[in-house]
Every structure is written in structure tokens, then in C-alpha cells.
Amino acid sequence: MKKQNEPMTAKKAISKATMSILTMMPMLLGVIGLVALMQIYVTPGMLAQLFGHGLVADISTGTVAGAISSGNPAVSYLIADGLLKQGVSLYAVTAFILSWVTLGIVQLPAEASVFGLRFTLYKNILTLISTILVAFFTVLTLKGFAS
């Protein structure tokens, strides 16, 4: 029987790594399929319309909007810049940028199937709380420096 701590050959290491990607390919393709749909159906204009209902509502909206959106982080920065120029608060915009890269509603089923429900719940609840708090403290700190 092969010992667990026996060194792995380079060929076996590459083959194992390739297999780990291959076995998850249906899940990854599913997530990519949903991400593409979100990119088509959730437009920056639609996102902009969601804001302008007070600080707490805007932070919540920013967080949810970022979580349902997907794509390159640069896109979130550009949308955020546009939202700022439209008068949306920096709190909401910061929550939006953060949740764009840290939360992903479309990948939740995949995440739960890979890591289990308990870990997925903890991860996403903690990320959600952290995102709101980071947005709040970032703007508060900047205001503190500015005054």
C-alpha cells in the first residue's frame, strides 16, 4: 500500500490537478452560464435606478446589487464611478464594489455543493456583514481624515 507521505511524481501531480479541474467542470460551466445571463440581463442602467432611497437602503442595495452582478472587477469600478457621479453615496458605492468581488449569488449552489452548506452559510453571512462594515468604516475613516 502506498504511504500518504510518499513523494508524488510530477506526472501524477499534474494529472491529479487536471482531474480536480475536470471533475468540477460541469459546476464551473453552470456558474459561467449563469454569470453570462446576469451580464446580459442586469445592465448598469438597471443598477443605477435602484439607488437614491437613503443611506441604509442604499448600502443594502449596493451590497445586493454587487452580489447579483458579476464580471471583471474593473467593470464594477466603472459602474461605481458612474453611480458616484449620479450622486449615489460613497457608502453604497463601496458596498457595491466589495460585494461584486466577495459575494456571488449565482455561484452559491456550486459553492454549497463543493464546501457544504454549513461552510457556505458561514462564509456568505460573514462576508455580507464584513462588506457592510468595511464600506461604513472606509467612508467614516476618509471623512475623519478630511475634517
Binding site: 480536480s20 466577495t102 455561484q107 463543493v114 464546501f115 462564509k123 460573514l126 464584513s130
Partner: peptide, 30 residues
């Protein structure tokens, strides 16, 4: 994107990597 790292993270987790370190990894990706 985060989801492309799932296979690697799952591989590490199966070898005993702590959940807390995975959370740190995922959030630092911001």
C-alpha cells in the same frame, strides 16, 4: 473569479486546511 479556485481550495481542505484560513483567503481576494 472565485469559483475557478474551488477545485484547488477543496483539494487543500480535504488535506486538513482550516476553514478559518479559507475564509481569510476568500475575503483577502477583494
Amino acid at each position: 473569479p472565485m469559483y475557478v479556485w474551488y477545485p484547488t481550495i477543496q483539494e487543500l481542505r480535504s488535506h486538513g486546511v482550516k476553514d478559518s484560513l479559507l475564509l481569510i483567503f476568500f475575503y483577502a481576494r477583494a
